Amino acid sequence: MNIKKILKLLIILIIFIALIFSSACTSTDGSDKYSQENGSTTAGLGGNEPFISTNPVIWSQEDQVLNVTGTTDFPAGTAITIFSGLSVHPCPISPPGVTVDTGGVRSLCNGNCSTEITESVVYAVQGFEENNTWNCLVNTTEWCCCESYFIRAEIITDNKTIQDTEEFRFSG
């Protein structure tokens, strides 16, 4: 084989490999692979996904009112629904009439924790940088310090739900 044939074969091989890799990066239906991830949609042609986020929740005292905060790239004035409550879990099965001794600490399995899921609506406010902020007061009265809880912030737009959930436990 002479050098010209080897170079031609090498160029054809490189083109073939490039075609294989470029076809693996596009979807067959022409949609952006990120457009449906986490129930969100892409915004505009830039491909930026709209978002809402919840800052870490610190629950350090029983029966306290938490000031839960977060950010979003939705405009100021956008309604945000905040859900909060107990992360319900299955309880161990025990014989009828027998309760688990928790040493006086309230628990879901003993039936003395509030299982109510609260719902509040807050509005995004103008942030200091490129993102806007939101905050919500959440009352933890009757919550059990040995259980896990959640805060979920969500915005419904164009029949899509954009959401973020923060799970936490008592840290006191």
Rank of each mutant, 00 (worst) to 15 (best):
P95V: 05
L108Q: 10
P90D: 03
Y123F: 14
F83S: 13
E154T: 12
T102M: 15
N112M: 01
S114R: 09
V100K: 08
N131H: 11
P90G: 04
D101N: 15
C113A: 13
E129C: 07
S107I: 00
S84D: 06
G85Y: 09
P95Q: 13
T99E: 11
E130T: 07
V121A: 10
I82C: 05
W134G: 09
G97D: 05
V98C: 09
V138D: 03
F83Q: 13
Q126T: 10
I82G: 05
T133R: 15
L137T: 04
N132S: 07
I93P: 05
E119C: 03
Q126M: 06
I93D: 12
C91L: 03
G111K: 11
D101A: 07
I151C: 11
E147T: 01
S148R: 11
I117P: 07
E119D: 06
E147D: 11
T140H: 06
V122M: 11
S120E: 07
I80C: 07
R106F: 06
S114Q: 06
E119S: 13
G111P: 08
R106Y: 08
F128M: 08
F150V: 00
V98F: 14
N135V: 01
I117F: 10
P95H: 06
V121F: 10
V125W: 14
R106T: 01
T157V: 05
Y123I: 02
T99H: 10
I93G: 13
T140L: 04
I151A: 09
E154S: 15
R152M: 15
V122S: 07
V98L: 14
G103C: 09
F150K: 03
S87K: 12
I80E: 04
W134M: 13
I155S: 12
S84A: 15
I82D: 08
E130N: 06
G127C: 06
Y149W: 07
N135Y: 15
I155T: 05
T141H: 09
I93E: 14
S94G: 01
S94C: 00
L86M: 01
I93F: 10
G104K: 12
